[in-house]
């Protein structure tokens, strides 16, 4: 079935009084890490019409990822960057997915995400999370950072929240449950955290729209 971008736009905007698609189409959003958080964040944003997603990961899809990441059996052995690109092309073929198959750290993150207005930190490792968040917030650009911390284990869904740390820094999670505590990671809690992160992206993008709209009035 042939779907035009106009069809897709109308479907995204259906039942909304705001032109969500048009605003999302102009957004350039970074996703650092394409695991449980990143793969779910990227797909949620693609469904809402994200125009450009800069997706970065060095890893390949393994069987142990399937319990919480967007990948399926057919993606096993593929680079996560290529797999997410393939998945998003089936969700929203009009989303431009720019991929970097590489290890991202505090030294290269500001350059890789240089064109992004918002970056979602979606790493697994606590030290790596802290490094990239610090580096992005220290960069002179006013990039906004939405991080995920504390979504391991099962249950306690309502403990996962979004906290505004500053006007440029938001953190989603329960801030406590560490995968090192041995309860593992489950799709349900990881997707809640990813949902919080993607939701904050949309809130930032559409709040700006609201503001401009009011100014125009």
């Amino acid at each position: 079935m042939e779907i035009t971008e106009e069809d897709f736009k109308n479907a995204v905007n259906s039942r909304s009084k705001f032109p969500i698609y048009e605003k999302m189409k102009n957004a350039v959003i970074g996703v650092a890490g394409l695991g449980g958080l990143g793969s779910n964040i990227a797909c949620a944003l693609a469904r809402s019409g994200a125009g450009t997603i800069v997706a970065v990961d060095f890893d390949t899809v393994e069987l142990s990822n399937i319990n919480r990441q967007m990948y399926t059996i057919k993606h096993l052995g593929m680079k996560k960057t290529q797999a997410i690109k393939a998945i998003i092309s089936e969700i929203n073929p009009f989303c431009n997915v720019i991929t970097y198959d590489m290890f991202i750290d505090e030294k290269n993150c500001t350059e890789i995400f240089g064109g992004c207005e918002i970056v979602c930190e979606a790493f697994d490792n606590a030290k790596s999370k802290a490094e990239i968040v610090n580096a992005l917030l220290l960069s002179s650009r006013k990039v906004k950072v939405i991080s995920g911390s504390g979504m391991a284990g099962f249950g306690r869904a309502n403990d996962i929240t979004t906290k505004t740390v500053s006007e440029r820094f938001f953190i989603c999670g329960d801030m406590k449950t560490d995968v090192a505590d041995g309860e593992g990671l489950t799709a349900s809690r990881v997707m809640i955290c990813a949902g919080h992160q993607a939701s904050k992206v949309m809130e930032i993008i559409l709040k700006d729209y609201d503001k401009h709209k009011n100014n125009d009035c």
Partner: peptide, 24 residues
């Protein structure tokens, strides 16, 4: 981070310390 060892907390400072835990 380079300033952690030379920055002293002053009266009326508003500080947020975000501790990261693993998992993603």
């Amino acid at each position: 981070k380079a300033d952690y060892a030379k920055t002293r907390i002053s009266d009326n400072d508003e500080i947020e310390v975000v501790g990261f835990v693993g998992g993603g």
